[in-house]
Design a protein around this nucleic acid. Structure first.
Length: 360
DNA sequence: ACTTACGACCGCCAAC
DNA sequence: GCGTTGGCGGTCGTAA
């Protein structure tokens, strides 16, 4: 792998509030942090640095049920690349002004903002959700709509990726979102490795909603057949006129329907699909960048590189290098466990200590 | 790096 | 009257 290509070193700040839920706090800690996966693989530096931020301290009689030790002041999120607001028990209560101010600052500075479950209410209070596509726990949708009419609430999905703002629905959907982010940052090989350790079937990176029986099915839109046709013809030249002709709609109406049903413009939707296709080919085949660019409809390597650097922060070539270097399997996990003699040493030392303490 | 031209997007409005 | 459609034109982003 090219040593000049540093995998983006991310700092992830988790905002711990009075009524934060243990589960929603644990999921990002487990997926982003604690370096456990990195240590198992023998790597020097973990891909993320995780820090816990808040105002004051957390008392053990809150919803968390325990304390979390020293919290960095919430203003510290200003230095984070990614800010996560976990779900909390009383989303309608106004949060501390320092929290809201720090979130607004971080958001305006361009940090990636992630809410889990009811955490979307906190981002909303910070004024970050105007015009944004966002989701939250299904039991809170009415309250959310009433409180933040300026946000575009999406139901029937596990999570929503609106670029800078990402949000997941109820509780364990946070896992899907966190794995989606891992995949975006480090590739699907890494994300799948983490998913396997968590024994979780990830559904990241898909434009389709998770096929989960517990989520109400998303109503089929009139564009469904058009989207299917587009997915089949990604490698061809697709301008607005051609798509409109195929859909038997005017360009204007087509754009409107796209916006309503996918939240995206036609071009944006096609660009994302092409990016997904190109990622898959780079990760799973030996096709050259030029071949990938042609077969995914980017047309030229310049085009494709622009899309990659814009959305992923790396060129296609470097993406392939980073991703393949980071791909690992469950077998790697077992291989990188300490060799048996290390274990034996450890046990022996432990027994020595026991024996010493007994004065034997 | 810079200019240029073209297409995409979307607000607006009239027509259905 | 209300919702939907689609044409027009201004602005913006992007490809060449």
């Amino acid at each position: 792998v090219n040593p000049n290509i540093a995998v983006r070193q991310h700092r992830v700040a988790l905002v711990v509030l009075e009524s934060t839920f243990a589960l929603d706090l644990a999921i990002p800690v487990q997926t982003f942090g604690r370096a456990v996966f990195t240590k198992l693989r023998g790597e020097a530096t973990p891909p993320y640095e995780v820090m816990l931020c808040g105002v004051g301290s957390i008392t053990p009689d809150g919803p968390l049920g325990f304390t979390v030790g020293e919290l960095a002041p919430v203003e510290a999120i200003a230095s984070a690349d990614t800010v996560v607001v976990p779900g909390l028990e009383d989303p309608l209560t106004a949060q501390h002004p320092r929290v809201l101010h720090a979130l607004a600052e971080a958001g305006n500075a361009g940090a990636r903002m992630i809410s889990l479950c009811a955490g979307a209410f906190v981002l909303g209070q910070a004024g970050l959700l105007a015009g944004r596509r966002v989701t939250t726990h299904w039991a809170l949708t009415d309250a959310f709509r009433a409180t933040f009419p300026e946000a575009e609430l999406e139901e029937h999905v596990a999570y929503v990726d609106d670029g800078q703002i990402l949000s997941s629905g109820g509780m364990l959907a946070a896992t899907d979102l966190c794995l989606h982010v891992l995949r975006d940052d480090l590739g699907s090989g890494y994300a799948e490795g983490v998913a396997r350790l968590l024994i979780h079937n990830p559904d990241y990176g898909s434009a389709r909603p998770r096929a989960d029986p517990l989520l109400a099915p998303r109503p089929e839109g009139s564009l469904t057949p058009v989207l299917a046709w587009l997915a089949e013809h990604l490698h061809e030249h697709l301008d607005l006129q051609r798509i409109a002709d195929h859909a038997h709609l005017s360009k204007r109406t087509l754009v409107r329907h796209f916006r309503a049903q996918t939240g995206l413009s036609p071009n944006e939707w096609v660009a994302r699909q092409r990016l997904e296709a190109a990622r898959s080919l780079l990760e799973n085949t030996d096709l050259t960048v030029l071949q990938v660019a042609h077969s995914t409809g980017f047309g030229s390597t310049e085009n494709m590189r622009r899309a990659f650097t814009y959305r992923l922060g790396v060129s296609p070539r470097d993406y392939r290098g980073v991703v393949q270097d980071r791909t690992w399997s469950a077998n790697d996990f077992y291989r990188t466990r300490p060799a048996s003699h290390d274990v034996d040493d450890g046990i022996r030392r432990g027994m020595d200590i026991c024996l010493d303490s007994r004065g034997v």
